[in-house]
């Protein structure tokens, strides 16, 4: 777009020249496209730097705003992290349902073995583990602590068990497989242990939705905090906005510093949120490790890693930018020279 009124070459003119020699008229600044591009980039750089300077020029006020953002974001992030850790902790007894097939007590070992092989060949079955009565007794003695009482028994009361891991976890398939197993003459009873799996899944889903809902709500809170903060910034720089508009600033030019400020608030808020979550995880990791050790598990708490750092800072910066945009769209239009 050519913003100049005239096309006469603008040279540096000396005051001595009479007006007649000035050509068709005085002309505004001529700036080449390349210069404009450099200047545009330069202005972005300048505004980014300036917004940082302004952020740190009032460390207490900026810090408090960033902290509000951080707390609002740390909450859902911590919940999410807790959820991830919970899922990892229960991954050992993962969501795979398992069918326990208790066989009649008088079935011979070789028959059981061939039955197990037969089951393994079925398309619905992924794996079959055979636990002989002796194995079952040994395991029971070990885990129950009733070894002394059990040695008092004359015979092994436990039946042989086949643990069948189905290939398909769809409940219809599971039921069908369980039915097939029940129909076998060798089978005493079949336990399709799905209830806890389903409960666990529901619980995880509940946690996930809760954290998502909380995140949404708190993101809105962050947005409002940024909108309000930027609105105050705009009010404080009202005079400056008027002046630059009078000397020909476009709306984009006026907007830019505020958008960068919003970005700044978001970014530092996100960074602080990550630090909060990391500190919390560090505080909890000791007790969690101790607890899991007492259960005989080597599970340790996973802190928020680099992905959390990136996600939180980027997400928060984006929220900040969005909030600034809302504030700017609402308030800068209203500041026009009168």
């Amino acid at each position: 777009m050519n913003q100049r009124i005239h096309n006469s070459p603008r040279a540096t003119r000396t005051a001595q020249r009479p007006p007649a020699e000035r050509g068709p008229g005085a002309v505004a600044a001529r700036t080449s496209l390349g210069d404009r591009w450099h200047s545009w980039l330069g202005h972005h750089r300048e505004m980014a730097g300036e917004s940082l300077r302004r952020f740190f020029a009032t460390p207490l006020a900026s810090g408090m705003t960033a902290l509000v953002i951080a707390i609002a974001l740390a909450l859902p992030a911590a919940l999410q992290l807790g959820l991830v850790n919970f899922q990892r902790a229960v991954a050992g007894w993962d969501g795979q349902p398992q069918i326990s097939v208790f066989l009649h007590k008088d079935v011979r070992d070789s028959v059981v073995q061939s039955f197990a092989d037969e089951l393994r060949a079925k398309p619905l079955v992924a794996d079959v583990t055979y636990i002989s009565p002796d194995d079952a007794l040994a395991e029971f003695q070990q885990s129950s602590g009733l070894a002394d009482a059990l040695t008092g028994l004359d015979s092994n009361p436990l039946p042989a068990v086949l643990l069948v891991r189905p290939r398909n976890t769809a409940s219809a398939d599971l039921e069908a497989l369980a039915q097939q197993l029940r129909d076998s003459a060798l089978t005493d009873s079949v336990v399709l242990d799905m209830a806890w799996v389903q409960r666990l899944a529901q619980l995880t889903e509940l946690g996930r939705r809760l954290s998502a809902g909380l995140a949404l709500l708190l993101a809105l809170g962050v947005l409002l905090v940024v909108v309000n903060t930027i609105r105050l910034h705009i009010e404080n720089r009202r005079e400056e906005i008027l002046v630059v508009k009078l000397v020909g600033a476009t709306d984009a030019f006026v907007r830019r510093p505020f958008l960068y400020s919003g970005l700044c608030y978001g970014f530092f808020g996100g960074l602080l949120a990550w630090l909060l979550v990391a500190a919390g995880a560090a505080l909890l990791s000791g007790p969690v490790a101790g607890l899991s050790a007492s259960y005989g598990s080597g599970y340790t708490l996973h802190g928020p890693g680099i992905s959390y750092l990136l996600g939180l800072t980027a997400g928060a910066a984006l929220l900040g930018l969005l909030g600034a945009w809302v504030a700017v769209a609402r308030h800068i239009k209203a500041i026009e020279p009168r």
Binding site: S39, G42, V243, V247
Partner: peptide, 24 residues
């Protein structure tokens, strides 16, 4: 005069140029 007191004389005068996108 509508000068901005948060910056130097130079920066005040430079305002229309930075708005128009002049090189440094």
């Amino acid at each position: 005069h509508q000068l901005l007191f948060d910056r130097s004389v130079f920066e005040n005068v430079a305002l229309p140029l930075s708005v128009a996108g002049c090189s440094k």
